[in-house]
Amino acid sequence: MTTPLVSATGLTKVFEVGSSGLFGLRKPASLRAVDEVSLTINAGETLGLVGESGCGKSTLGRLLLRLIEPTAGRIAFDGSDITGLGRSAMRAVRRSMQIVFQDPYGALNPRMSVEDIIAEPLLIHGAKPGAETRRKVTEMLGKVGLPARALDRFPHEFSGGQRQRIGIARALVLHPRLIVCDEAVSALDVSVQAQIVNLLQDLQREMGLTYLFIAHDLSVVRHISDRVAVMYLGKVVEIADKRTIYSAPLHPYTRALIAAVPAQHPAQRSRGRRERIAGDIPSALNPPSGCRFHTRCPHVMAVCRERAPVLTEPAPGHQVACHLIEAPQA
């Protein structure tokens, strides 16, 4: 049986947005970016996390790493609760969890050489600069497919794909167990994107990594993931094994999302043939009442406007939060 490496329970993040006024008198608006999300990531698997802009998937990834402090809820890593850990205790945990970012330009300090960038995590965790550190950095560089002569180069000398390899090397140099890939291939050209996806999969096998793969591209997520979670306006609406979720999605939003992916061949053009959802994504500052998807849902019922559906498990390993699914059991 698989064991969870990470588990989140009731994880919530509320951002206070807007100016607080001259003397903090004006009440700022609150944005529930992540709203009572509970999920687990098993050791060695890749959990895909998809959703459209503003759904909170990036925030969730950063919450799990405690790069952002949660407003409520708990995070357990490898069986122990890390929600309340202090700075120094958390530092030890950070060895085991790392992040790869989307923007290959903003993710590397332009004033540091490749060697300094990749060596930094080692130095933070007590390594001394010198031959041993250099050997580890060179080895990691080789693993991500870059030659040793890249060591004394600076980020601006590399292409987007190569920078992403450097970012991956930095994340892996401490031999962590969990990697959060936050849109790690989204900014790359498709021909380069495939290289990086393959690299991530090779490294996962080789180093026994667990991935949380956050992306908006559904076909890439399907390719790389074992299970997939779908988010909409701060809520997880469906989680299932990838084959199930792509071939038999239960939540109307998941269905609409998959139907909206452009065809892969002109013979499968979707115009006029597939279910389309109308309207725009509502603002997260003022989300709809009840089920947050009810304003765009083709199957909306009266109950959807009043009460938020809870995540239920209609089949083993397949969770969904929708009144359509809940109703038959009630």
Partner: peptide, 9 residues
Amino acid sequence: YVQAAVAAG
């Protein structure tokens, strides 16, 4: 890259 450094501890 600052976030990455925070993530590295």
